[in-house]
């Protein structure tokens, strides 16, 4: 079966429509590679691991943000439209500059800041079946692919909203008992770029390739997250 693929190109003169022979199961990444191999070697797109672990191949498929390597074509698909992820400056074709995402990510101190006396002391013990682990585990597997950021109607350059990924990670770290930067994060989250800018679009939860629920994390943050000294 042939698939008619329309790809957003930076150069308006470059070919943007391709007919691709499909096989099943076929992912969007397979489609891109087929185009590059058989039709248009200059097509620009990023990928790396091919197994939804690195978060590099985020694009919009038929308007929806997703990982190219993970999006399987429906058997009866006849048309496909591919665009670069939204909210980022476009470098070329489907390649975007993801700096806006990382700027917001860095703002929430995205790592555990241990207490001074914890360094060199006993390892922290947080059992797998504890309430803390239950709270943290569902949100921990973020691969920072930016699909949520892209699909959010608020987050994106040039706005300064922290975005679903950063807020999700902020909640994880706020709830981590080993961390001592809770107050700074909560101030940021409660501030002008934090949860008050979320308007319940739910694009984030709908597009997360890891099945995370940033919208739920944001709702948790509104209710105060974890109370800490």
């Amino acid at each position: 079966m042939t698939l008619l693929v329309r790809v957003a190109r930076s150069d308006p003169g470059a070919p943007a429509e391709f007919r691709v022979e499909t096989f099943h199961p076929m992912t969007v990444l397979d489609v891109l590679l087929a185009i590059q191999r058989e039709h248009e070697p200059s097509l620009g797109f990023r990928f790396s691991c091919r197994v939804a672990m690195c978060g590099t191949c985020t694009i919009r498929v038929d308007g929806r943000s997703a990982l190219a390597c993970q999006t399987v074509l429906p058997e009866d698909a006849t048309r496909l439209r591919l665009d670069p992820a939204a909210g980022f400056p476009v470098v070329r074709d489907l390649i975007t500059d993801t700096t806006p995402f990382w700027e917001q990510w860095a703002r929430i101190t995205p790592y555990v800041v241990p207490a001074d006396d914890a360094v060199g002391g006993e390892p922290a013990v947080i059992p797998p079946d504890s309430a803390e682990r239950e709270a943290i585990d569902p949100a921990l597997d973020c691969i920072q692919c930016g699909a949520c950021f892209s699909s959010c109607g608020i987050a994106g350059q040039p706005r300064t909203f922290l975005g679903p990924a950063a807020l999700n990670r902020a909640l994880v770290l706020i709830q981590d008992s080993r961390d001592t930067a809770t107050r700074e994060r909560r101030e940021l989250v409660a501030g002008a770029d934090g949860v008050d800018r979320c308007h319940y679009i739910y694009g984030c939860t709908g597009s997360c390739p890891k099945g995370l629920d940033p919208a739920r994390s944001i709702r948790r943050l509104r209710k105060g997250g974890r109370d800490d000294g």
């Binding site: 308007g63 939204a86 909210g87 699909s151 109607g153 679009i201 694009g203 597009s207």
Partner: peptide
């Protein structure tokens, strides 16, 4: 603003 930052929809038959 939506065209630029919202990565979720295309108006038309697909929508």
């Amino acid at each position: 603003g939506a065209r630029r930052t919202d990565g979720g929809t295309h108006v038309g038959a697909v929508l």
